[in-house]
Amino acid sequence: MNRVTSNSVLVGDSHLPLRDVVAAELRRLILDGSLPPGERLVEDRLAQQLGVSRNPIREAMRVLEAEGFLDVVSRRGAFVAKLSVRQADDLFHVRLALEPLGARLAAAASAEEPNTELLARAWAILGLVNDSGPEQDRDTLATLHTELHSLIFEMSRNDYLIAIAIPMVKRGQWLLRQNSQLQTPSAWSEHHGLIAAIEAGDADLAEAAARHHVLSVRNSLRPRLEPA
């Protein structure tokens, strides 16, 4: 059984509401694979490792259950969820609605006044992946992929869209980390055209590129998912 790594944060030292802090830390551990799909979560062990009492652990687990990260089975406990084909399809339906919109708004905003800092970071991520290629580990690539897609939504300058979309992007990171071949160049090639369209302020092209990318990823991932 996997254990939470020694560099986990002692969230009991935080001044934020413990339920939210613990939920954020458990979510991070799930997303980065420290708590893998199917792992049973033991309240006492997590409380000791995170430096909190059992109560905020229990409350945080209810939050993560509502978000779909945990499955709670009567008389057996809480387990890190496994994404089924149906759940992945649900996620991609939302991505198909939000990511083309985010790319269109990002390009429109760029046409008015480019966000040079965010664009530079997007190109830097693509350059880093291009230079390192297969040498990068899957966790790092998944994190960079999440940051890149988050940057696109940030470039939209639409606070409502950002608030809705960033959690979706993070959930997508979990799916990609488990199933995607991010270490292959083809997994990143479509991002170059997408960022270029946003930088050029071409809203139609950016929207089309984002939709094509989401469909391409969905088609490549679906055969690797477990049946619902």
Rank of each mutant, 00 (worst) to 15 (best):
A165N: 08
L119E: 05
N158G: 08
E135T: 12
H149W: 02
L128W: 02
M155D: 06
N158Y: 05
R121G: 05
I125F: 01
P167Y: 08
E117W: 01
L126N: 08
D159S: 14
V129T: 03
I162A: 08
G127L: 05
L148D: 02
I164Q: 14
A120Y: 01
S150L: 02
A122Y: 03
T146V: 07
E135K: 13
L141M: 11
D131V: 09
N130V: 00
I152D: 01
L118W: 06
L119I: 04
A120D: 13
E154V: 04
Y160Q: 13
N130S: 15
S132F: 10
G133M: 06
S156I: 06
E135D: 12
M168I: 15
L119M: 07
F153N: 03
E154Y: 09
E147V: 10
L118S: 07
L151N: 05
L141E: 02
A142K: 03
L144K: 02
I125H: 04
F153W: 04
S132E: 13
A120N: 10
A120L: 06
A142W: 01
L126I: 07
H145A: 10
G133F: 03
F153V: 11
N158H: 14
A124H: 09
S156Q: 07
E135R: 15
Q136P: 00
A163V: 09
I125E: 04
G133C: 04
A142L: 04
M168C: 05
R138G: 02
F153P: 00
H149R: 13
